[in-house]
Write a protein that binds this DNA or RNA. Structure first.
Lengths: 212, 212
DNA sequence: GGAGGACTGCACTCGTGGTACAGTTGCGTA
DNA sequence: TACGCAACTGTACCACGAGTGCAGTCCTCC
């Protein structure tokens, strides 16, 4: 997936047109939805012609797929950051994770104005517009979160056996659930504090669950 | 808001055309988004002409507003049900609430196939299509949840003072956050068990927070 | 029997996605 | 220095769906 960008990056005099199209499109899609994002507005913003657009994407569907792939790469970086920064401050899997969650909450609170939102959610509520391949990418983007959190909870469970029976898959999914839901509430209520506060509550739940 | 339906209900030979348009539109909007829901498909499904549609709604924006109003009425009924059924089985505010959450989880799990989704979330990710009035309705729909849950947590706190400092507004928002996020995950992963399991985890968090 | 609610029928305009394809520009390489 | 190719531009075109406007019809209740 990363290689995709390696193929087009070193060509010619840079040519970041494709990237600029994708960045512009992502903003527009999160604000109005995919269907209402017109090719005309994208090319006007980026400063190319319609033919230029269809040079980069054979049709609008391919734009959607490229958006999703780009989003997944970025998403993965955010996840890596979450786990890495906590762990480098703390060797213990539980406490490193708790530190990571706190940093994650801070990060989500420091975004400029209302967070733009999540492409996966946007696509999910318009999934009939897309083909199965894109829906699969969307599902995969969420499964990545589940697997990452689940692996961590398994690790934590070894050192800190949970005091009660816990649905660890649900606890793993709760992270993305709260992010998706928190972004929606944050946007609708124009309150950037909602998402970080949800994450801190999640942190409490994780602590209650594992800490002796 | 309820009166709106009283005005049109008793006229003529029933005439449920408007309601059928709204029901059809809601399904379509949740599947494809508002912009991609064509008036043509709605009238084809309901069996009227385009003129008939514009007799009921002066334009598409008014359809959006009517959808939102209809959704809020239904939403409120769901909320009432959640609190009422728990309380009629149990006088204690905490335990009544915990019972209500369990019933709510069961209700969400027994929906036919994948849950259709939430209009508020769909509209939120397409909010630039709508005017301020509709965005305000959308925010209000979410605030209703916050107020209802917050009032209940205040009530519970009196009898069961929380053991740690808790962000009660965040805990209240967590309900709608988990529902919104859970619907997204449930849809994207085609797994109806996700949402009920999130609600049960929420129930655990509430129990841990208040129960001595 | 007439008023009005609930439509139908028709004839438009306009914006946008999408197609097709020929032409242009400028950098890297042989 | 000529060639090739990436990265576009320009033009012309089609189909479809939102939305407008308005005259006409049918049925029911008073």
């Amino acid at each position: 997936m990363v290689q995709l960008r390696m193929i087009e990056a070193p060509t010619r005099k840079g040519s970041d047109t494709r990237e600029r199209l994708l960045a512009t499109a992502e903003m527009a899609v999160l604000a109005k939805g995919f269907a209402s994002t017109s090719i005309e507005e994208l090319i006007a913003e980026v400063g190319i012609t319609k033919s230029g657009f269809f040079y980069h994407f054979k049709d609008k569907t391919e734009l959607a797929r490229a958006l999703m792939e780009r989003y997944m790469i970025h998403d993965r970086e955010v996840l890596d950051e979450l786990f890495r920064r906590g762990d480098e401050l703390n060797d213990d899997p539980l406490h490193g994770f708790l530190v990571g969650l706190r940093l994650f909450a801070e990060m989500m609170g420091q975004l400029p104005e209302a967070h733009p939102g999540c492409l996966a959610a946007s696509f999910c509520y318009q999934d009939q517009l897309f083909d199965q391949q894109i829906r699969d990418l969307n599902a995969e983007a969420l499964l990545v979160w589940r697997r990452r959190f689940r692996a961590r909870f398994d690790q934590i469970s070894e050192r800190y056996p949970p005091r009660h029976k816990v649905d660890l898959d649900a606890l793993s999914d709760m992270a993305s659930t709260l992010v998706e839901g928190g972004l929606i509430l944050g946007r609708a209520l124009k309150d950037v504090t909602i998402l970080p506060r949800q994450i801190l509550l999640y942190r409490d739940l994780v602590r209650f669950t594992f800490q002796p």
